Amino acid sequence: MISFVNLTAQREKYRFELEKAEREVLDSGCYIGGPQVQALEKELSEYLGENTHAITCASGTDALTIALMTMDLHPGDEVIVPDFTFIAPAECVALLGGIPQFADIDRETLQIDPKSVKKLISKRTKGIIAVNLFGQCAPFKELREIATKHKLWIIEDSAQAFGARTSQMACTFGDIAITSFYPSKPLGCYGDGGALFTANEAFAQKIRMIANHGSAGRYQHEIAGMNSRLDALQAAVLRVKLKHLDEELVVRRQNAAKYDEFFAEYNCIVTDGQKIVPQKIETGCKCTYAQYTVLAENRESFIQKLKAAEIPYCIHYPAPLQEQPCFKVPIAVCGMMMTEEEWAANQTGAEWASEHAISLPVCAFTDVAEIIEKLKAHL
């Protein structure tokens, strides 16, 4: 059976290093904070550049919440988020009383569309959360120009893209950046975990306080915060995996290139009109390929072929965020409710992607050649 993310094979390869690191933590009696967490934060900072502060926390979602609290988000403030992504960015805004405004995406790259961002800016807009979706960096040059013009902050959601590179490293574009260490991420631990990154010393100090009950010192609570800590065992695991991250990312990119070559050949000879086009990766971007995502004209037909070939797949994401029950509101145009025909004619990029995007296994321990042979037999 092919795994979507082969964590078992990864652990087997690094078993000696991982077990040694795990024993050291268990034998130390220091399970929260301490030298392992401090060492990991230093190594994460060095990976991104020594002027970048790295602060770990309990999850990527916590990291987003802490980032928004650091930016003093107040009830009624608006934050622009992509409509096609995981719910966390919009959810965290809403939980703090803010109002998420949903920007459309580019249909080829699947990243947030700066033109859509511009249209959403109002007097209540405070910032933008840009997601590095599927491991590719969002269009930060254009987003930064917009943010500077309108005096907005940018939070970079790099939950899927720690280790990506373009003009600079992912996790260094935003005023604050976050990542997730969920096990299936390119850099994952054995449970939940996350981190925040910033070059701003004042932000870094505030982030640390918020994550520690708003405390800068024992029983001295300067602001209302939360309890969000990465435990020492997860830090030890991440320190081992961080050493191997770049070599794994090379393999992920090689795997993606094999898929690219296969689908380019397939689209040249397709006879049923059902093209399968890979997500466009912008020139110069070294994507982490958190997953390998394609856009299938007839996704259901493709799924049936994947099932017949016993190839695992995932659908990210089956509906735009503003279509989720917790956010959905009636859509009106010029004061009139839209008909189904009008809705189809005005379909957004996010709606289109939610109907066509599907992801395939691509991790460094996936035999993509085997998957391609299985695909050839069923496409």
Rank of each mutant, 00 (worst) to 15 (best):
I2E: 09
T8M: 08
A9P: 03
L18I: 15
K20S: 09
L26M: 13
C30M: 14
K42Q: 06
E43A: 04
E43K: 07
E46V: 06
A58F: 09
G60K: 13
D62M: 05
L64K: 00
M69N: 00
F84H: 05
L95T: 12
A103F: 10
I112D: 07
D113E: 06
K115E: 12
V131S: 02
K141G: 08
R144I: 06
E145D: 04
A147V: 12
H150L: 07
L152S: 03
G163W: 00
I176C: 06
A177K: 01
K185H: 04
D192P: 11
M209Q: 04
A211L: 13
N212R: 09
R229S: 05
R229C: 07
D231W: 05
A232H: 07
R239D: 08
K241T: 05
R252M: 08
Q254N: 12
Q254F: 06
Y259H: 10
N267S: 06
I269V: 15
K286D: 01
T288Y: 05
I311C: 09
P312K: 05
P320L: 12
Q324N: 11
T339A: 08
E340K: 14
A345Q: 09
N346W: 07
G349N: 06
G349A: 11
W352C: 03
A353K: 07
A353Q: 06
V362W: 03
A364Q: 12
F365R: 11
F365N: 04
K374T: 00
